[in-house]
């Protein structure tokens, strides 16, 4: 089932064009990853999809009633705002304690309910953001560099979790990532963005496309093969082995 159709969309920030003539569709249950250098318009594309930016031209067509779960790239909570994990998860809709525990469990962040948001480690914080997105019961999960600030085992565990969630919830996943080798193994389709869609298709097609190689070099194809192996290997470990390290989300 088609969830999202973007046709010929252009978005600009003031007078500078951010992305031009983007076409993109997303179907139920698929994982689509956007890659591209800094400033290539990846976040702009996501923000246009959630409705935070208005396209100059073109259309974003969402299937009626489609629910979006959004995990932003950065979320800094002002130290003057006291908020616990379970209160944070009750925004903007009030959720029952049971739903909250379920979502935290799904996101691999059990028993964090009563912690203040500012006392979470980087990995815990990302998982709580994911849990909040899951509470929307999303048809489409949108993640903007979900592994920012995580170490390698942590980010591998998070990608494993995202793939697992796709299977258990049936939600489609649209994410932005810098970790090319991970992306290549975990996605059904890859969109290479650089102000416009350079190339687009299965990971194998994109990795061998000259446009992609011009942006990222040819080294990533080797990494792809390597990572596929690692990824299969790590999948069984679940996320118990996440090596979260404390990240300060604002001091008092």
């Amino acid at each position: 089932m088609r969830l999202l159709t973007i046709s010929n969309m252009s978005v600009s920030h003031g007078s500078t064009s951010a992305i031009k003539n983007v076409d993109l569709t997303i179907d139920k249950g698929e994982i689509v990853t956007i890659v591209g250098p800094n400033g290539s318009g990846k976040t702009t594309l996501l923000r246009a999809i959630i409705g935070a930016l208005r396209p100059d031209s073109g259309t974003v067509l969402r299937t009626a009633g489609m629910r979006i779960g959004y995990v932003p790239q950065r979320l800094s909570i002002d130290p003057t705002l006291p908020i616990s994990v379970s209160r944070f998860l009750s925004l903007p809709k009030r959720r029952s304690q049971k739903d909250i525990s379920n979502a935290l469990g799904l996101a691999g962040a059990d028993a964090l309910d009563h912690r203040p948001m500012t006392a979470l480690s980087g990995g815990q914080f990302q998982r709580v953001l994911l849990a909040r997105a899951l509470l929307e019961n999303p048809d489409l999960l949108i993640l903007d560099e979900p592994t920012t600030g995580l170490d390698q085992p942590g980010s591998a565990a998070l990608y494993g979790l995202i793939e697992e969630l796709r299977q258990t919830t049936g939600a489609a996943v649209l994410m932005v990532s810098h970790e090319l080798h991970v992306v290549m193994s975990a996605s059904d389709r890859v969109v290479c963005l650089n102000g416009h869609v350079c190339c687009h298709g299965t990971p194998e097609i994109v990795a061998s496309a000259p446009e992609y190689r011009a942006l990222f070099g040819s080294g990533t194809q080797g990494a792809l093969a390597l990572y596929r192996h690692e990824h299969d290997h790590q999948h069984d470990h679940d996320h118990e082995h996440t090596h979260d390290h404390p990240h300060d989300h604002g001091s008092h």
């Binding site: 959630i50 935070a52 979006i68 779960g69 959004y70 979320l75 705002l81 903007p92 909040r132 929307e136």
Partner: peptide, 17 residues
């Protein structure tokens, strides 16, 4: 609820309509 969500992060608010 809407004010609090917007205060935490405007994009989270947009994504929830």
């Amino acid at each position: 609820q809407a004010l609090l969500t917007s205060t935490l992060n405007p994009d989270l608010a947009y994504a929830s309509g």
